[in-house]
């Protein structure tokens, strides 16, 4: 049995969850810092800034979804791992990269954008929606990356 292929595919699943998760953690953490600042002065704005804080959290979920789909496709979830050649393993590893890398950077970028949006909510709470829309724009690229990763995972012949 060629275990290298399977190892590479599992590495791909890990990387997608890991890097996208780091991006989200950094983004959510940054917005959390800004949000805590606002709430310390005006606790009534908690719900408004919470929405902004949640936005960069999606990249981590996309990474997790990709990892689960990949582990399911190669049979690791379910206990019937398929035999993969090294080339197939590398393909799965490659499939994980879009969401892993885009997830990492878009999570951080969305965090910055949402943290700036917290400033809008602090000064002009009635324009909170605009802050959410601006931060949500970054999400587009994480979704595109997720789509590519999923397409790749389901189109690798095993």
């Amino acid at each position: 049995m060629n275990s290298m292929g399977l190892a590479l595919a599992i590495l791909g699943a890990s990387i997608s969850a890991l890097l996208a998760g780091i991006g989200s953690a950094k983004g959510v953490g940054l917005v959390g810092e800004a949000a805590a600042g606002v709430v310390s002065v005006d606790p009534d704005k908690f719900s408004k800034v919470l929405v902004l804080q949640l936005l960069p959290g999606t990249q981590g979920l996309y990474g997790l979804l990709t990892a689960i789909l990949m582990l399911s496709r190669i049979g690791v979830i379910g206990g019937n791992a398929v035999e993969l050649s090294t080339a197939q393993g590398l393909m799965f590893l490659g499939a994980s990269l879009p969401i892993a890398i885009v997830g990492l950077f878009s999570g951080i970028a969305q965090g910055r954008s949402a943290a700036a949006g917290v400033g809008i909510t602090a000064r002009k709470p009635e324009h909170n929606g605009k802050a959410i829309i601006m931060a949500a724009m970054v999400e587009t690229y994480a979704i595109l990356a997720l789509l590519v990763s999923i397409l790749l995972i389901y189109n690798i012949a095993i």
Binding site: A34, A35, A122, R123
Partner: peptide, 18 residues
């Protein structure tokens, strides 16, 4: 680009209202 003082800036933005 740095993200220093995110919390402090948010506090200041809130306090600017007063």
């Amino acid at each position: 680009m740095g993200t220093q003082y995110a919390s402090a800036v948010a506090v200041v933005r809130t306090m600017e209202n007063s």
